[in-house]
Nucleic acid binder design. Structure first.
Length: 355
DNA sequence: GACATTTGACCCTC
DNA sequence: GAGGGTCAAATGTC
């Protein structure tokens, strides 16, 4: 818990720093009478940065013990479904447990929710395992109207033992069966679930081709895939590299409260790694475990990143400390000292923008 | 035996 | 009433 809190604090600070850096850039633009378009983009990025910082503050706001973090995706206080932690209250006991179940339902309804789109390819079908560091247990499957493939429902394995209410839904795309839409709901409050993803035992065996696809968010999420792989010492797949187009026209996207994405800015050569500040954690569903696999090789990364990047390499690259992270539950795992944060820096209103 | 998955049924929301 | 989300008994796997 404390670990998570520290990470969130780190992310928060990095977002604020980003906002400051962007404001500085904007000031330069103002001085040099740059185009309105470029300044508008900077403003967009600044707003995005602060929006994310606010989201983090919302998510990490202290809740009562044992309660999952709430909110971000909360859309309503209306109870969603009467459930109790001990089971499913049927009509018999609905009355006596009415109040309790209402509270639990409300809690669930308010769980943050966001969606990732993950692509797996045919060569990924046969080997390897892949998980997001969390332990999921399937609790249901439904045929969805108008969908070719059933939707699977997963909850955290530690729901009952640790009152962890994280769930996810996995829906295979009709249009492209290699794409899975994964909707996460709630954040993990379990200790197990917070364990980092273990490093791959054999990079060449565990390289996987995961590409988040979404007409709106793919740039951002793909970059996270790439970073995630690089962090793990994995090679980067060509499909990733080619679908991750930069420099100057790639938008980052920020997930918003209504579970969609909003543009968080334009990536340029200086802040390509913006979007790398949040390592993508990929799903651990049986389907995806089954589909993940090896793809022997791959090298370029738009000519900018070589394969098998080491952590030190990334540190250098990340030194451009702007960010376009997308999830309110951000798992920032590079340390603040890499950001060269002045320990005496104060986020006061004046100094923040005038330094 | 413990734990995970499957699947039919139940409940809620719209 | 339809559709989606969840439960829990039955079944499977280790």
């Amino acid at each position: 818990m404390e670990h998570r809190g520290n990470r969130e604090q780190g992310t928060l600070i990095s977002e604020l720093i980003q906002g400051m850096e962007l404001a500085k850039q904007l000031r330069v633009h103002l001085d040099t009478a740059s185009s309105a378009e470029s300044m508008d983009l900077l403003v967009q990025k600044i707003l995005s940065s602060y929006e994310k910082a606010l989201l983090i503050l919302q998510v990490s706001r202290p809740m009562s013990m044992g309660q999952p973090q709430q909110n971000v995706g909360a859309t309503s206080g209306v109870p969603e479904s009467p459930l109790s932690i001990n089971g499913s209250p049927r009509s018999d006991d609905l009355d006596k447990d009415n109040q309790d179940t209402r509270d639990v339902s409300k809690k669930r309804k308010m769980l943050p929710r966001w969606t990732d789109h993950v692509r797996v390819t045919s060569e990924n079908l046969l080997e390897g395992t892949h998980d997001d560091g969390y332990s999921w247990r399937k609790y249901g499957q439904k045929d969805i109207l108008g969908a070719k493939y059933p939707r699977s429902y997963y909850r955290c394995t530690y729901r009952h033992t640790q009152d962890c209410w994280a769930t996810k839904q996995v829906q295979r795309s009709d249009e492209d069966p290699t794409i899975f839409e994964i909707t996460y709901r709630g954040t993990h409050t379990c200790v197990h679930g917070n364990q980092p993803v273990p490093p791959p035992a054999s990079p060449e065996k565990q390289e996987y081709k995961l590409t988040n696809l979404n007409t709106n968010n793919n740039q951002q999420l793909q970059s996270q895939d790439i970073l995630s792989n690089l962090r793990k010492g994995l090679t980067v797949n060509t499909e990733m590299a080619t679908s991750f187009s930069f420099p100057s026209t790639s938008f980052g996207w920020l997930k918003t409260e209504n579970h969609s994405f909003s543009p968080s800015g334009v990536l340029d050569n200086n802040n390509i790694l913006n979007s790398f500040s949040s390592p993508f954690t990929s799903p651990a569903t049986p389907e995806l475990n089954y589909f993940s696999a090896s793809q022997p090789q791959m090298n370029s990364f738009g000519g900018m990143l070589s394969t098998q990047n080491s952590e030190p390499d990334l540190k250098e690259l990340i030194s451009a400390n702007t960010s376009a992270t997308n999830s309110p539950i951000i798992d920032l795992d590079f340390s603040l000292d890499q950001l060269e944060l002045d320990p005496n820096f104060q986020f006061d209103a004046q100094g923040f923008f005038s330094s």
